[in-house]
Amino acid sequence: MTLTNTVSPDFPPSHIAGWYIFNTWLQNTLNERVRLELHDSFSQQQEAIQADAVDMIYANPADAAVLVREKGFVGVARPTNRVDEAVIVVAKDSPAQAVEDLPESLKVAMTAQPDVSTMGMIMLEPADITPDTVTKIERDTYALVAKSLMDGDADVGFFLKDAFESLSSFVKSQLRVLVTSDIQVVRHGLMLGPRMQQHKEALQAALLSMHETENGKDILSGLGFEAWEALHSEDVEFMIDLMETLTV
C-alpha cells in the first residue's frame, strides 16, 4: 500500500524541494512507500481529506477540527520556531495610516489560507468592518495578493507575516504594513491519519532527534524549521478551541 503525505498549501514555494527531500527521508525512516501529493489550493486539499486520500498532513490549524473530529487524525510533531501571524497590507501611497481610516465597504485581497483570513478579519473589526461589509478577492498565491494591491484592484491584502516578509524587496517597497497580529500561539502541526498511526511513536522519535545530525539539519533547513517538538493531543485540542474562539 502506498501512503499519501501532503502539506498545507500555504507553505512558501521556495520550500517545495525541501518537502520532497523530507518525504524521501520519511520513506527511508518508516520503510514504507509514501507519495507526496501537493495540492494547488485549500479546496483541492479539503476534497482529498474528505475522500480519505490523505494519510499524513502538515496542517493549517484551521483544518485541525475536521482532521481530528471527522477523520481520526492525531498530532505527531510541530516545528519549534514557526508561529502564524497575519499582516494587513496596503499600497504604499494608500491614504490609510491605521485600520480605523479604512472605509467599511472594502475590497480585500487574500489567499484561501484560513487562519490568516480569520485573523485578518478580526483586525478589521475595530473599524466596524465585517465579512458582510467587505468584498473578498481570493487569489491563489501571496504574490498575486501583492499584485492586486499594486494594480489598485484591492484596498487591503491579508498575508501570512512570513509570506509577506519573503516577497521581493521591490514588491515590498510598493506596499506598507498597516497592522500585524500578535497572538503568539497559532501554529501548524504534522498530523497522522488512521492508516499511518502504527508509525506514530517511531516517527515522533525520529522527528524529535532530527536536528541532532547534519543530514537532519539540512532537511529541516529545507523546510525553514529549526527542530521538531512533540505535538500532543491536548495541543491539537487547544488549536481547535483557539480557532473556534477566533471565528464568530
Partner: peptide, 11 residues
C-alpha cells in the same frame, strides 16, 4: 489604548 493586532489569550 488596546494595541493594534494584539490578541489576548487565556485558558
Amino acid at each position: 489604548p488596546y494595541p493594534d493586532g494584539r490578541l489576548i489569550v487565556s485558558v
